[in-house]
Structure formats: structure tokens, C-alpha cells
Design a binder for these strands. Structure first.
Length: 185
DNA sequence: TAGGCCATCTGGTCCT
DNA sequence: AGGACCAGATGGCCTA
């Protein structure tokens, strides 16, 4: 059972940037690049790997270039951690606004995204039905619905109040989708 | 024990 | 130039 919430995990001792990651990076296709970029990437990688291979032996003196690059790496790691934490907060905020079966079990990220998508679809369908095929407000200057969507930070901060919880009435279809999702279909 | 999920590290690329 | 973003790698925790 996944009923109990996991304790926050502290990743094993923060890795020493000196301890080279070794063969961590196989050739991955460079995102968004042509053959030239691929070539450049290969040579950069070769240089970097060579540098790592021989770099492990020298001891960085205080204030050395190596030491400052280690420092930069650590700062970069910290920023990346913060970024991921923010992302996870956003996921949590999303979990809290989409209704789901078995509230005792925390939704995984992929479940959260999939259910959110289905939920949006379901709500959209409901709105369309209620407004006889037209989105309410589309005749007006700026649809309120869209205005609401223009504030992503609000959701990210978990600022949605209880008053904005989804209405209970129109979720029959969505809950069916949840069930089929849970069944893995 | 295998498989799923996750946090973290890392190096590359993109953007300001 | 420096920070944000991205994706691969790695290893820990948990459940079936």
C-alpha cells in the first residue's frame, strides 16, 4: 500500500563535484540542432571528458580556477534543486484542485497531469453544454474565463481558495474517467 | 526481488 | 556572462 506519506528524502551526501560522473552521458541527440551543432557538441564532449579524466588528480589550490568552477557547480545544483522544488509545489497545488478517487493515495506526477487534462476537458464540455455550444462571455470584450487563465502564478503559489474548489455537480463523467485511468485503461 | 516513482546531480542548450 | 531549462544517469524508497 502506498497509504503512508513518504518522509522527505534527503538525497545521499551531496555529491562531490570532483568525483567525476564518469560514463554518465551517452550520446543523446542534441535537442534542436543540425549536423554542425552535433559535431560541435561531440568535440566539446570529448574535450570535457578528457579534462575530467585527467583533472581528477590535481588538487585545486585555494582560489584556483578549479575550485571556483566547483563552487559554481554547487551553486548551480542549488538553483536546480530550488527550481525542482517550485515545480513540485506546482504539482502539489494541482493535486489539490483536481478531484480524485482514493484521496488517501498521493497522485503521481503523470497521474496528476493526466487527470488534470481530463478534468479540464470535462469541465469544458460541461460549460459548452450549459451555454448551448458557445463559451460564455465570448461575445464580450475579454472572456472572464480566459482572464482567469492568465494568472498561472496564482495557482503555482497554491493561492486557490476553498471557494474556488471545483463544483461537485458536474463531475460524473470525470469520475468515470478517473476510474478507467485507475484501472490502467 | 522487480518495477515504479522520485530527488538529485550533471552537462548541454537556450534565453535575457 | 549567468541563470533557466532540459534530459540522461544514478541510486534510494516503497509496494506488490
Amino acid at each position: 500500500m502506498k497509504t503512508k506519506s513518504r518522509p522527505p528524502r534527503r538525497r545521499v551526501p551531496p555529491q562531490d563535484p570532483e568525483a567525476t560522473p564518469g560514463e554518465r552521458t551517452p550520446d543523446r541527440p542534441p535537442p534542436g540542432s543540425g549536423p554542425d551543432a552535433a559535431k560541435a557538441l561531440r568535440s566539446r564532449r570529448a574535450r570535457a571528458q578528457g579534462a575530467r579524466a585527467e583533472g581528477g588528480r590535481r588538487r585545486p589550490g585555494p582560489g584556483s580556477r578549479r575550485e571556483s568552477s566547483v563552487q559554481r557547480r554547487l551553486e548551480s545544483n542549488e538553483r536546480e534543486r530550488q527550481r525542482m522544488h517550485k515545480l513540485n509545489n506546482a504539482f502539489q497545488a494541482l493535486r489539490e484542485v483536481i478531484p480524485h478517487v482514493r484521496a488517501d493515495k498521493k497522485l503521481s506526477k503523470i497521474e496528476t497531469l493526466t487527470l488534470a487534462k481530463n478534468y479540464i476537458k470535462s469541465l469544458t464540455a460541461t460549460i459548452l453544454t450549459m451555454s448551448s455550444g458557445r463559451l460564455p462571455g465570448l461575445d464580450g470584450p475579454v472572456p472572464k474565463l480566459y482572464q482567469h487563465y492568465q494568472q498561472p502564478q496564482q495557482a503555482a503559489r497554491g493561492a486557490l481558495g476553498a471557494s474556488e474548489a471545483p463544483p461537485e455537480g458536474h463531475l460524473q463523467k470525470f469520475s468515470t474517467q478517473i476510474h478507467s485511468f485507475r484501472e490502467g485503461s
